[in-house]
Simulated scan of single mutants.
Amino acid sequence: MAFPTTRLRRLRKTAGIRNMVRETSLSVHDLIMPIFVTHGTNVMEPITSMPDVYHFSLDNLNDEVDRIAALGIPAIILFGVPDHKDATGSSAYDHNGIVQQATRQVKARHPELVVIADTCLCQFTDHGHCGVVHVHEVNGHQIGEVDNDASLAYLTQAAVAQAEAGADIIAPSNMMDGFVHAIRAGLDEAGYQDVPIMSYSVKYASAFYGPFRDAAHSTPQFGDRKAYQMDPANVREALREAEADVVEGADMLMVKPALAYMDVLRLLKDQFDLPLVAYNVSGEYSMVKAAAAQGWINEKEIVSEMLLGMKRAGADLIITYFAKDMAEWLQKP
């Protein structure tokens, strides 16, 4: 029936009614907080392009993790910034690597906190790519290309080392073909059949990663990552990427970035029944922080609407640098 019999504003009249009929909600249990860990002592180094985000050495990590746990945030994802880089990213799969050390420390202090280990080589390689590089000559010029199949062995070693250290979830972000299959097989062979894989299934070659690359010191030394990360123009390809990961044994799927790819989130939610993760990435974070610092926007309202939109689009979980702020806002609406 039409107006005046139907008046849609009736269910918007009061806060109480709006709360009763709200279709989508955001909870602290939806949030995952990223942490950058590094070597050294007494390091709490601000990341200039990401206000209120820091590099933490292990001796300063406990205070950060204590705060996260106290806010009720259920999970963190660890990114390592090593003191040694080489061609194969050996610090990534070193059993005493920085991510492995941080994992053991966090699990000893907060066993209930879910530790997710980002599994990639880009922070650990001297060339900054997500896999090992094969150099060959073309017309007298040295050309470096990421060797997909050779990279899988190193990524699998990294995943096993992270699981041995106590990581609850392995989150491979490298976008090599076959990475889920290789890591699943490696984990199973090492006795970690129960460790789930949160796959960066649909990771675009995005301009929104700039601040993260500053934070992780992972900018490629040559070329770019467009040959293995997805073209932002493509959406049907996202289904092929996600389907491959499902077949290979992924337990969760991810879309990265989130804000410009809400349609992709919805597509994967409608097509697959695995838990879906949205990564609210560094560029999205820094844009909001910059505008809020100028007084142009209300940060709390913008962040709340943005994260709620990701949930509405289909995300079950959200990795976000706003996790601590959002947890506090949820406690004090």
Rank of each mutant, 00 (worst) to 15 (best):
P74E: 05
V106Y: 08
V255Q: 01
K332P: 00
V180R: 09
M230W: 11
M310L: 15
K311D: 13
D52A: 11
F179P: 00
L58I: 14
V138P: 03
G140P: 00
L8N: 13
Q221D: 11
L26Y: 04
T88H: 11
E248M: 06
G249S: 04
G128N: 09
G140H: 00
I68Y: 00
E45P: 02
A227W: 02
K300A: 11
A182Q: 05
D63N: 14
G178H: 03
Q101H: 15
V53Y: 02
Q294Y: 06
M33L: 15
L259W: 06
L274E: 00
L58R: 09
V43Q: 04
I77N: 02
K13N: 08
V247K: 14
E145V: 13
A278D: 08
G178E: 03
I68K: 04
G140Y: 00
P4Q: 06
A190P: 07
A242P: 07
K203L: 11
A313K: 03
P4T: 04
D168G: 15
L276G: 09
L268T: 00
M287L: 15
K300S: 07
L308P: 03
L330E: 01
A15P: 06
A207V: 07
G72P: 05
D270L: 02
A190K: 06
D194G: 11
D149W: 02
G72Q: 06
T38Q: 08
S282Q: 07
K256A: 07
D66H: 08
V180N: 04
E328C: 00
V43A: 07
L330W: 01
V133P: 02
I170Q: 01
G16K: 14
M44S: 12
V65T: 10
I302K: 06
L26T: 03
P4H: 08
V180P: 02
M50K: 08
M287Q: 14
M44N: 09
A75W: 09
R240K: 08
Y192I: 10
S27F: 11
H136R: 15
K85V: 12
G249N: 06
E189V: 02
H39M: 03
M262I: 04
I319C: 03
M287V: 14
